[in-house]
């Protein structure tokens, strides 16, 4: 896969492919960071279709190639900040979500976008245990979903997305904690009600709907003020976490007037 370079890319050095594909939180394949790399190979991503529905003019089942055709692909080198206070830089390949939603025809009353991951316990062994309320769900406000930084990724480092990174198609929202960027999407639903995401449903005090990267609002059990860059070595130290993961110039206006300590 090749993607056109994008002005939204960071010039920071990306993590290696080995790091990006062997250190994953993808509980559908197990809770250890190495489980997805070991077990996601069994997931069959072909054929695959994404059901776009709800408040859209053209609901239906879309193939991955329809959503992210080769000629529309862009390379987006984004910082990723996990809620666990580590971070990476990842060269995604994908398309802006806005274009996909435009083609489905968002109806005027729609205010939110809900996403859902595949539920297939025979190939996703983590789903055999009630670690989370399967299938994994996430959601965005419509303006967040339409923001040019928000993409659906189908590739990584010039290759099709490896299964452990959310093949064949996943969301990437770089100013939010990593868990918002839902993987292996099978359903996108436009709605007028705020969806409840999986982590929010499980532990509403710890995980909010917005989950914007915010060094001033700590996770109740750990600080979000700093982060450790994966690959920095044994004595690489910690970096200050940036508001909106460093994307404040582009996205801060989405939250003007909101109390982000309340809407965390």
């Amino acid at each position: 896969l090749t993607g056109k370079p994008s002005p939204y890319s960071t010039d920071q050095t990306p993590n290696t492919l080995e790091e990006i594909t062997n250190y994953n939180n993808f509980y559908e394949f197990g809770m250890d960071k190495t489980d997805p790399a070991r077990r996601a190979g069994a997931l069959d991503t072909d054929p695959w279709s994404v059901e776009i529905g709800g408040m859209v003019d053209r609901p239906g089942s879309y193939a991955v190639d329809d959503l992210a055709p080769a000629n529309a692909l862009e390379e987006r080198i984004y910082r990723l900040r996990c809620v666990e206070a580590w971070s990476m830089v990842i060269p995604w390949i994908g398309v802006p979500l806005a274009g996909v939603l435009d083609r489905a025809g968002v109806q005027p009353g729609a205010k939110f976008v809900a996403f859902e991951t595949l539920h297939r316990p025979e190939q996703m062994p983590g789903q055999n245990r009630p670690i989370l309320d399967w299938p994994y769900k996430e959601g965005l406000r419509l303006d967040e979903a339409m923001h040019p930084l928000t993409i659906l990724a189908t590739g990584l480092y010039g290759e099709a997305l490896p299964n452990q990174n959310g093949a064949p198609i996943r969301l990437v929202v770089p100013w939010k904690y990593g868990f918002k960027s839902i993987k292996s999407i099978v359903r996108i639903t436009l709605t007028d009600r705020q969806p409840v995401s999986t982590w929010q449903a499980m532990q509403p005090r710890e995980y909010g709907f917005y989950a914007n990267v915010n060094p001033q609002v700590d996770h109740p059990r750990w600080s979000q003020a700093t982060e450790r860059r994966i690959g920095a070595g044994l004595f690489g130290g910690r970096e200050e976490t940036l508001m909106f993961n460093g994307y404040g110039d582009q996205v801060a206006r989405l939250y003007a007037g909101m109390d982000l300590a309340k809407d965390y």
Binding site: R221, W222, S223, A225, R238
Partner: peptide, 21 residues
């Protein structure tokens, strides 16, 4: 102290009294 927190004494002290774990 040395590797994870890189001797950020202030952050360590705040965390030790605040974070249950």
């Amino acid at each position: 102290m040395l590797m994870d927190m890189a001797l950020l004494w202030g952050a360590m002290a705040r965390d030790v009294v605040k974070r249950p774990y």
